[in-house]
Design a binder for these strands. Structure first.
Lengths: 109, 109
DNA sequence: TTTATATATTGCAATATTACGATTAATAAA
DNA sequence: TTTATTAATCGTAATATTGCAATATATAAA
């Protein structure tokens, strides 16, 4: 028990859930927000700007990287994280298509 | 530890995360999909259509109801669940606004 | 009232997530 | 080389989520 039964859902449903997890924690929302806001590709400044330990931020960054939504470029001793525009657009299309289901639906209650 | 530090994030960040959780599990994605697909307001058919135990479906429905995304009308012994169109539109606006941040951002890497 | 049906709730086990201190690894500067 | 700086990883504790059997609740039908 406690294990999500991925096999009984469609690929699309699993992929939507997988991507939505990126936004299902305020720290990751904050990280993404910071990455968009700063013109310069911020790196470990995230640790200062968001009030979480370095290990915690690093873990969240790893999850976002695993989803493909961000990428990291090593620059000397620090790492520059950026949004992966291609993957971001892909994610946007998948999720907004799901959200727009309401347009063609007639509610009964 | 293990407790999300909501207090260090903005209200918007917390709300985005809260709503994104609705889509962060394939069972809930499947439930919402079924609710949109069926013109008649389906009720416990979800248990048959999705391969999860009745108690599990009921729990996911409760979470979606708590987020305000769906509402349930009691009809005899069964309950008719539907999308709450107003809340859905609200959620859509909040999340798509967040997703559209890429439009005004210039990536550096 | 009794019985059947549908849904919610409870209790519990398994697994996942969140957070952080400590450590490691890797590069830059002295 | 030695030392500082930055980020990743490891280990661990606390908490949350997922799933289901069993039970409770509530209405409909007999």
């Amino acid at each position: 028990m406690g294990l999500t039964k991925t096999e009984i859902f469609t690929d699309a449903q699993n992929e939507i859930a997988r991507l939505a997890k990126a936004f299902a924690h305020p720290a990751r929302v904050a990280i993404l927000h910071h990455l968009f806001k700063s013109n310069t590709c911020i790196c470990g400044d995230l640790v200062d700007e968001i009030g979480l330990a370095q290990a915690t931020i690093s873990q969240h960054l790893k999850e976002l990287k695993n989803l493909g939504l961000i990428k990291g470029n090593i620059e000397g001793t620090s790492v520059c994280y950026c949004i992966d525009q291609t993957k971001w657009k892909e994610m946007k299309l998948l999720l907004t298509t799901f959200f727009d289901q309401d347009i063609n639906s007639n509610n009964c209650c």
